[in-house]
Write a protein that binds this DNA or RNA. Structure first.
Ligand SMILES: [Zn+2]
Ligand SMILES: [Zn+2]
Ligand SMILES: [Zn+2]
Ligand SMILES: [Zn+2]
Lengths: 138, 138
DNA sequence: ACAATAAATGTTATTTTATAACACCTCGAG
DNA sequence: CTCGAGGTGTTATAAAATAACATTTATTGT
């Protein structure tokens, strides 16, 4: 279920299929999982998925989770405008939350700057236990 | 050139070979690049490299760069003890600096905690321009 | 409307990254 | 000695991503 459709700039057929697949999944999917999901809708080759993903990533509708080799629909209304995003990945249920790093970005930049490094983009992925799993474990 | 040998707990033959390869490289290498580098030293199959890497990762002598699918020798005297580490990867020269996140960890944890998430491990990889490349570009 | 151009698609083959499965060796505790 | 854990060597396979090429579908300028 897709909640906040961004300012969706009309997707093409394949882009729409891939985006819907990711949105409905409610969690991260690998490119090949998307492929399987869309076999019935005419998607037959990995490239069809990867090409759609490339565009969706450009548009900011989808994010790539490097530590999982997988992709997730953006959960945030205006990622592009906002500060650095970070992803909290639950080790138990594999759910993913996308959080806004508000002032985190400034701290990262200044930390990097102390080494003479100019930040262009940041990948921040946390591993741990989500609130639901934390409570059920007690 | 390996500078600060940690408290190296005697590596096995293959572990030593892989660690040396990574140390001498002075930058990130893929498992298969390590394999190629060590063909002359009796390493013939990916598994020999991946098994050694697994142990080296456990020991904290080596880190995995998720966004590059590659590995780098630890540059920091005492990673284990220290706070969250972050990696600054230069988009031009591909060099990698490992920085200590001092108070960054606290901020990450509190940010995650506001979502009910308990952090176990963090992957932080920055993309940008290193000091050397920044100056040469001018 | 029509040609020129750009963007998206369909398909096959290939590369790159990572594991599975199984046999053998080595070395130290009992 | 023996047996059990960890390390090694090897072959085969799985999973993730890209290359190359032909075709089709929009966009744009005239
Ligand atoms: Zn987002
Ligand atoms: Zn969970
Ligand atoms: Zn380190
Ligand atoms: Zn550089």
């Amino acid at each position: 279920m897709n909640t906040h459709q961004h300012s969706t700039p009309e997707l093409t057929k394949n882009q729409g299929l891939v985006y819907d697949s990711l949105s409905h999944a409610g969690g991260p999917l690998s490119a090949y999982a998307i492929l399987d999901d869309l076999r019935d809708h005419g998607i037959r080759a990995p490239l069809q998925v990867y090409r759609a993903l490339d565009k969706l990533l450009e548009m900011g509708l989808v994010h790539r989770l490097e530590s999982l080799n997988s992709f997730v629909a953006c959960q945030h209304p205006d990622c592009d405008a906002r500060a650095t995003m970070l992803f909290a990945i639950c080790s138990k249920c594999s759910c993913v939350s996308e959080l806004a790093g508000e002032d985190l970005e400034a701290q990262l930049k200044s930390l990097a700057a102390s080494d003479g490094f100019t930040v262009q983009a940041a990948t921040i992925e946390l591993r741990g236990i989500c609130s639901a799993c934390g409570q059920s474990a007690a």
